[in-house]
Design a protein around this nucleic acid. Structure first.
Length: 807
RNA sequence: GCGGACAUGGCGGAAUUGGCAGACGCGUAAGGUUCAGGUCCUUAUGAGCAUUCAGUUCAUGCAGGUUCAAGUCCUGUUGUCCGCACCA
């Protein structure tokens, strides 16, 4: 079969007949199958894209044949740094390169032969889209979920822009790998922390990979504890520390402030001023990566002041150290060297007193802090309590005295969304000397991104230098004012695109609430695991925020999530141009066609694991296709009789229905490799029937029909061609997926393994449903010679599987 | 350091969730078809011992344990990958 020719033939026919047009009137049967959209980079679609989109399309077609009205849209996450960096290098405007890349990728995506309904395409860099991204910003702002503040932020010196915490994981820039530094800037934030509890608590409701759920949980990082107030000796300054171990508060021997804490200046004594200032400066210069290293030596300086421990009145020194994080808790911690590893190390390093060390390590004289939970001692009235009880009791007592309270803290920080870059959605805010921050009115959206801008990076927002953009008038007072010069993080664009797809032409609103509530949530979301703590968290936040504003009536955007694995080069390494191990889909498609290529991707790997590419696999799929084509042809060349099914027919029919059952089940759980293995077995069974039975039964013909139907989601063009060859009506994708007839699966006879003392000794065939005594008897007979001289103590019968004779 | 996942033939990978380990495919070998090569078809293929047949021992990173029965459960250990990284 000429695969190239049949591919263009059917793609043309599908397009002409509008086969994949979503039928809105069927919305009650909708199935929203979504793959993470692509970034239109300069490179063409690579094998990884295919690995995401090919099998996903198989899944979508399967759902369609099961009777769902499948909605499978496609679009482009088109704003972002790479296009801008490319422009800086080549002088080609980001808009031009991006739109050109999109065109190329659209063509390639169409060649996959997927069921995308292109009528619903979105491109985030177009004004008709980013108008609504800006609208999202205004809504968040109006609901107190967007705010601007001066804050030390992650700064990438190479990209010349700030990064969200999620984009600076490990102290390196997510995009370019440069070491991230801190910079104090006035920046826009989205208040994702307002949803920390709900984002955390709802995770368990989701059908997502456990690994991903755990990552989100850890990222949000909720911890229950208390804030305890310390009074500074000889001053009216008070401050609180956050602790999860209030049960150890009697053991406090010092307290520590973060260098950035405003308290530092308040408590530093004149004689320590110089040392403290020097320390502050040193820690401000340290890069994030330095500061985060746990092997790093702990350092710190005394402030000269003392604080009073509220539970026992003891006066303890106040220090400054950069192991305390300013933005977490209160930016101040209590030091309990006897019960905390880090406090112990710090106290030893600085020669601070250690109250009492409880544990000696086996075989060593070194004393170590006792960090586990235990029974309180040296803690006054709380002695004898368990740590769990003591924590609560101590905080309760402090609360009565007005010196403490229960407190929950989160590792999650608010999401920093402003970027000092050009190629993004402008922030719809005007800064007026008289009126302050003023939102751009909805009727004036979008704030268009000007085309002619000098975006050579110098650390400043490029839009600041574009006079016709930056200068405007204040919507409130009409006086001259300036536009916000920053653009939105591209993750803002992708936080709501799935809401736009079903209503992408709407020019009145981002989407129609009533319609979107019918179309969403997404039933199956497929994409890479690298977005666990970014896109997937942001999208959940947007959904919950929009719900609370009344625009949506559901709590979660993506009910069920699957991560595809990664296809590696033949050398087992990640594909990269520099390693020269990139597998080009185009070459392989030119040689084998899209169907064989995608079927190989599904057969050769466990979908969620991926693995190294192997060229041999394609040959084997090509052989399988030939085998299918030959057997289907043979089926229709012979004469049939309608006689009742004999043994051979019954067996063939049983394989047919067990294949239907397995394939249906496996497709539902993205187990494409085993589904295809079952299909190969089915084909093998058909060949066995073909060669062993002279006069073919009509069931043989049904097998050919079902084979084509079963195969259709995997190899759409090939199946369509075979379907036509069988003389059936267009299109195979308007047929129902075969349904298993459980009755056909029932065997007359069952083979059981016979074990003696758990070792396999033989097999026995018994009638299906034979009583236990009969099975035991048959089993004993089957291995009679080996039972000689043995006394049978016990016989275990596992129905349908084995008989174990214990002797 | 903490948290998580994984480890199965020469290779990619299966294993109904505690029940015949190695499905399916690749590769390899022998034979058949073919003028020949390829395609195609048949058979074999975890390792070892034995071999006329029957057989038998060892095998799921390593070491223990539970069980009639363990790739699967438990304990310890090694290695690989991923996430977090002084979060008090």
């Amino acid at each position: 079969m000429d695969y190239k020719q049949i591919e263009s033939k059917w793609q043309k026919k599908w397009a002409e007949t509008g086969l994949y047009k979503f039928n809105k009137s069927n919305v009650d049967k909708k199935y929203y199958c979504l793959e993470m959209f692509s970034y239109p980079s300069g490179a063409k679609l690579h094998a990884g894209h295919w690995y995401n989109y090919g099998p996903s399309d198989t899944f979508a077609r399967f759902k369609r044949m099961q009777g769902y009205e499948v909605f499978q849209p496609m679009g482009f996450d088109a704003f972002g740094l790479p296009a801008e960096n490319y422009a800086i290098k080549t002088g080609i405007h980001p808009e031009d390169s991006t739109l050109k890349n999109i065109e190329t990728m659209e063509g390639q995506l169409k060649r996959i032969g997927a069921t995308y309904d292109w009528d619903y395409e979105v491109k985030t860099c177009l004004p008709e889209y980013y108008k609504w991204t800006q609208w999202m910003f205004t809504q968040l702002y109006k609901h107190g979920l967007a705010y601007r503040k001066q804050a030390p932020v992650n700064w990438c010196p190479s990209c010349n822009t700030v990064l969200a915490n999620e984009q600076a994981q490990g102290g390196v820039c997510e995009r370019c790998g440069s070491t991230v530094t801190k910079k104090n800037l006035n920046q826009w934030f989205f208040k994702i922390t307002a949803y920390a509890d709900e984002l955390l608590d709802d995770i368990d409701k989701l059908d997502w990979p456990e690994k991903t759920k755990l990552m989100q949980k850890n990222w949000i990082g909720r911890s229950f504890g208390g804030e305890i107030e310390f009074q500074v000796v000889g001053s009216d300054v008070k401050f609180s520390v956050f602790t999860t171990r209030a049960d150890t508060v009697f053991g406090v021997t010092y307290v520590v402030l973060a260098p950035e804490s405003p308290l530092v200046d308040l408590v530093t004594k004149p004689e320590q001023k110089a040392a403290v200032e020097a320390y502050k400066e040193k820690s401000a210069q340290a890069t994030e990566i330095d500061r985060m290293s746990s092997t790093r030596e702990k350092t710190g300086v005394l402030t000269g002041s003392y604080a009073i421990n509220p539970v026992n009145g003891r006066e303890v020194p106040i220090l400054v150290s950069d192991y305390v994080i300013a933005s977490y808790g209160t930016g101040a911690v209590m030091g309990v060297a006897a019960h905390d590893e880090r406090d112990y190390v710090f106290a030893q390093k600085l020669g601070l007193p250690i109250e009492r060390v409880l544990k000696g390590k086996e075989g060593q004289n070194d004393e170590l802090p006792f960090c586990e939970y235990g029974i309180l001692c040296n803690s006054g009235e709380f002695d004898g309590m368990t740590s769990e009880d003591g924590k609560l009791a101590i905080i309760k007592k402090l609360e009565e005295e007005g010196k403490g309270h229960l407190k929950t803290n989160y590792r999650l920080r608010d999401w920093l969304v402003s970027r000092q870059r050009y190629w993004g959605a402008p922030i719809p805010v005007i800064h007026c000397e008289h009126c302050g921050e003023v939102l751009v009115d909805e009727k004036d959206l979008p704030v268009l991104l000007p085309r002619n801008v000098d975006f050579a990076p110098d650390g400043e927002s490029p839009l600041k230098k574009c006079d016709e953009f930056i200068n405007t008038t204040c919507p409130k007072c009409g006086r001259p004012a300036k536009r916000d010069a920053d653009t939105l993080d591209t993750f803002v664009c992708s936080s709501w695109y799935f809401l736009r797809y079903p209503d992408n032409k709407n020019s009145e609103k981002p989407f129609d609430t009533e319609w979107i509530n019918k179309m969403l949530p997404v039933d199956k979301y497929i994409g890479g695991a690298e977005h666990a703590c970014m896109h997937l968290l942001y999208a959940r936040f947007f959904t919950k925020a929009l719900r609370d504003m009344g625009y949506l009536n559901f709590d979660e955007p993506f009910l069920s999530l699957v991560h595809q694995g990664t296809i590696l080069g033949t050398d087992g390494n990640k594909m990269s141009k520099s390693k020269g191990n990139v597998v080009s889909p185009d070459d392989n498609i030119a040689k084998y066609g899209a169907d064989i290529f995608r079927v190989y991707l599904m057969f050769g790997f466990n979908y969620v694991e991926g693995g190294p590419w192997n060229d041999n696999g394609l040959e084997s799929i090509s052989r399988f296709f030939d085998r299918v084509e030959r057997i289907v042809k043979k089926c229709y060349e012979v004469n049939y009789d309608d006689a009742p099914m004999q043994k051979a027919e019954k067996e063939l029919n049983r394989v047919r229905h067990s294949t239907i059952k397995s394939v249906t089940n496996d497709l539902g759980i993205f187990s494409f490799n085993t589904a295809l293995a079952r299909l190969m077995e089915f084909v093998n069974a058909m060949y066995a029937y073909e060669s062993s039975v002279e006069k073919k039964n009509a069931v043989y013909k049904d097998c050919a029909k079902d084979l084509v139907l079963l195969l259709a989601p995997f190899a759409p063009h090939f199946a369509e061609e075979l379907w036509e060859m069988l003389g059936k009506e267009y299109s195979v994708f308007n047929q129902a997926y075969p349904v298993c007839d459980e009755k056909a699966l029932v065997l007359d006879e069952i083979e059981l393994a016979v074990q003696i003392n758990s070792k396999l000794k033989g097999k026995v065939v018994v009638a299906n449903g034979a009583p236990k005594e009969e099975i035991e008897k048959a089993a004993k007979e089957a291995v009679a010679s080996q039972l000689e001289g043995l006394t049978i103590k016990k016989i275990i019968v596992v129905p349908g599987r084995l008989v174990n004779i214990i002797a």
